[in-house]
């Protein structure tokens, strides 16, 4: 009797230690999507909203989704459009996703173009939001042409970034007309941003299509 009780205790201890050694892990994700609304790039917003909706539809319960805009001074609470952690059950999560869709659609109907493009501020804001999240995997999706143009009132060009443990996925990086004659300029721009993200401790991914983006995240 005693030996069997001891055996049970030992098995329980093994189970607990297996759990403690990382047998149980979280696969939840926190995704912050930043959308550039400056200048002419604002016409890409419907496409960004469609991407955001598809991305949200594939999230699981307990995942977090946030949607913010890259505007003149992005490190601001005003730039946050939606922030939602999905409930623990799939059915409730699906209903929450539908709420997110409605918010995004409303935003899409009333979005205004901004004069300046503060990408660093947006990245810093997203990183600080993700830092507080409990999710295991943290991703920032940047839907922008990556052409930064900061205003004199909100100069973030020297802003330091901490992207440790965060993956930055850039998508829909459009090529300007000027770059048609100088393709290297486009790649240089990408490389510069990649260097910036990697120096900040983040992981850089360039998804050149929506499918690639979804494929990478899920």
């Amino acid at each position: 009797m005693i030996s069997s009780a001891l055996k049970r205790l030992a098995s329980l201890a093994v189970l607990v230690s297996v759990a403690a050694c990382g047998a149980i892990t979280s696969n939840s994700k926190a995704v912050f999507m930043l959308v550039d609304v400056s200048g002419t790039y604002v016409r890409e917003v419907p496409d960004a909203i469609m991407t955001a909706k598809l991305l949200t539809s594939k999230l699981n319960s307990n995942d977090m989704f946030a949607f913010g805009e890259i505007g003149s001074c992005s490190f601001s609470d005003n730039s946050l459009i939606v922030r939602r952690t999905l409930p623990g059950t799939p059915s409730q999560a699906a209903l929450a996703k539908q709420d997110v869709f409605r918010s995004l659609e409303t935003y899409g109907e009333q979005v205004d173009a901004t004069d300046w493009t503060d990408i660093r501020g947006g990245l810093r804001y997203a990183a600080s939001e993700l830092e507080q999240s409990d999710q295991g995997k943290r991703i920032i999706v940047v839907h922008s042409d990556l052409v930064e143009d900061v205003s004199p009132d909100c100069d973030t060009s020297e802003l330091s970034l901490d992207l440790e443990g965060i993956t930055v996925v850039v998508t829909n990086v459009t090529r300007s007309d000027r770059e048609a004659s100088d393709p290297d300029a486009y790649f240089r721009r990408l490389e510069e941003w990649q260097a910036l993200v990697e120096e900040a401790g983040g992981k850089w991914v360039h998804a050149n299509s929506r499918d690639r983006l979804l494929e990478y995240i899920f």
Binding site: T25, N27, N60, T89
Partner: peptide
């Protein structure tokens, strides 16, 4: 699939959802 409704679907046990 419906088990996720009971246990949630954000955890993995030894790599299995």
């Amino acid at each position: 699939r419906p088990m996720a409704e009971i246990v949630g679907d954000d955890l993995q046990v030894m790599g299995v959802d």
